[in-house]
Design a protein around this nucleic acid. Structure first.
Lengths: 212, 212
DNA sequence: TCTCAAAATTGAGTAGAGTCATGTCTTATT
DNA sequence: AATAAGACATGACTCTACTCAATTTTGAGA
């Protein structure tokens, strides 16, 4: 009865190792060639497993991408959250959260866009997908927290606004029209939209006509 | 030299007829079974053309969906535009434009979502895709026009806000989380977001603290 | 009317994602 | 150590979107 050397059994360890190999293989291949130019066969070969085995670890190719990218996004989010703390201006603070995510998304533009596609249209039953949505939720919480610093914004409103920010980010990163834009361009594009949404019809910056 | 009976040649007419048959076939099959449960082969058979021919008229299956749905969306947009004219309140007027589009999108939810997916991630080189983007642009113009009625909103701002409205609509219709929602639910969801964006930090409805 | 180059059509073929019946390994139990 | 039950792995197979070399159709000009 080996209690010391088998914390979870060889089976579990084998599965974990296999998963690691899959993630490593997919990660490298996706990064080098882009998700569309890599076949699941190549990934299986590189991970040294059978074709069918691959699909025990990720139900679809898209899930495989989620699996690979999710961790990068978590890191990006944490970087942004930290950056945002030091910034007083609300718009700039939100953008501090946005920027690392855009950077992360644009490391390889095809992969980034496919990732976003999977997020919105992927199978919600899947755990990788759920994880991706959790990251989005955390992003929105971080944005909401920043917005909440402004006492004019009520908590419920902050959450809704954060969702809008999220939508703006998504489309600015995903839109085919924007494929040619650099990270800075995309951030600027997002900034333009956020400026209008976050600081919009306050009297102090328009001609000051009162609301109807 | 037949000048009378051949305004554009038999060749052109044949092509048009064939295209009509394709649209009719795809339209019926998609509507009945959903885009995912229809094969391109079935469409070709129903349109009474060869497999290869189908792809001369639409480069991909997704394009076929764009081809079929675009006209429905144009109609929805026109209905909404007309409805919006009679409505004074800005938020309600925008929602009048939104509703028919949501309705149109939810006639068959899978088709609607796939259509949105194609719009954002489809091939921009394609003419059907371009047409879809044009419809979006027109929708944004209509929204911007409504927003422009409020003299507090400058024209440039109205255009940007319209784009945000568009993004909100897109994600509320496309999100996997929302697949279970009815048309009314989706419209309500959009309304909640628009309320915050369009009427947000105006002093008259919050506790009235001035901007920083 | 006849000819022929260009345009249009075609379906057999390709490629790649995902499935499944079969076989192998792990481990709990004796 | 032997066994059995179930978890795990596998690659041949299927399914379907899409391609392309070969063929047919078209219509302007002779």
């Amino acid at each position: 009865m080996p209690v010391t050397t088998t914390p979870a059994g060889r089976r579990e360890r084998n599965k974990q190792e296999k998963l690691d190999r899959i993630v490593a293989a997919a990660s490298e291949l996706f990064a080098e060639h882009g998700v569309d130019d890599v076949t699941t066969q190549q990934i299986a070969d590189k991970a040294d497993i059978g074709t069918g085995t691959l699909f025990l670890y990720a139900k679809t190719k898209g899930e495989l991408l989620l699996l690979v990218q999710n961790s990068h996004y978590v890191e990006a989010l944490e970087r942004g959250r930290a950056d945002a703390e030091a910034i007083l201006d609300v718009l700039d603070a939100v953008l501090a959260i946005v920027r690392p995510i855009v950077e992360c998304n644009r490391v390889q533009i095809d992969n980034g866009r496919t990732y976003l596609r999977e997020m919105v249209f992927g199978d919600p039953q899947d755990s990788r997908h759920a994880e991706a949505l959790a990251i989005v939720a955390q992003t929105e919480e971080a944005v909401a927290a920043v917005l909440g610093r402004d006492n004019r914004v009520r908590t419920a409103e902050a959450a809704t606004l954060a969702r809008v920010v999220s939508a703006i980010m998504f489309l600015s990163m995903a839109a085919t029209v924007n494929v040619g834009l650099s990270v800075d361009d995309v951030v600027q594009d997002i900034r333009n939209q956020l400026r209008v949404v976050l600081l919009s019809p306050t009297a102090d910056q328009t001609t000051g006509r009162p609301a109807r």
